[in-house]
C-alpha cells in the first residue's frame, strides 16, 4: 500500500466525519429549536484538511503526469519508422552476409 493511497483514505474518512458531525449538529439544533446558520468551526477545519489531503492523494496516487509539450523528450519525434511495407531486399547488404553463420 502506498503512502498517497493511505492519505487519500484518511482524507475521505475526515470528510465523512465532517458530514456526520454536521448531521448531528443539525439534529441538536432541531431539538433546541434554533435556526441553522452555518456549520461549526471544527467541521469547516475538517473540510479544509480533507480537501487538501484528498487533492494531494488524487495528484500523486494515480501515476505521473504526461508531458504535453511537443518538444519534451517523450513527445519529440527524432526519427520516422523505417517504412517496412516498402522494404526491399535487393540492397548492398546482400554483398555482406552476416558474419556469424546461423543455423535453424
Amino acid at each position: 500500500m502506498n503512502l498517497g493511497f493511505v492519505i487519500g483514505v484518511f482524507g475521505v474518512l475526515i470528510l465523512s466525519h465532517a458530514a456526520y458531525s454536521t448531521i448531528q449538529y443539525r439534529g441538536l439544533l432541531k431539538i433546541m429549536e434554533e435556526e441553522f446558520s452555518g456549520p461549526t468551526m471544527n467541521v469547516v477545519l475538517e473540510l479544509i484538511i480533507g480537501l487538501v489531503l484528498c487533492m494531494w492523494a488524487a495528484l500523486t496516487f494515480p501515476g505521473k503526469f504526461l508531458s504535453i509539450h511537443p518538444d519534451s523528450d517523450e513527445n519529440r519525434a527524432v526519427s520516422l519508422p523505417d517504412n517496412s511495407d516498402f522494404m526491399i531486399f535487393n540492397h548492398r547488404g546482400r554483398l555482406f552476409p552476416p558474419e556469424v553463420n546461423m543455423k535453424f
Binding site: 523528450d73 519529440r76 519525434a77 527524432v78 526519427s79 519508422p81
Partner: peptide, 9 residues
C-alpha cells in the same frame, strides 16, 4: 514515429 525517450530506450 520514434520519440527521443523511445530511441534512448
Amino acid at each position: 514515429m520514434v520519440t527521443k525517450t523511445e530511441e534512448t530506450q
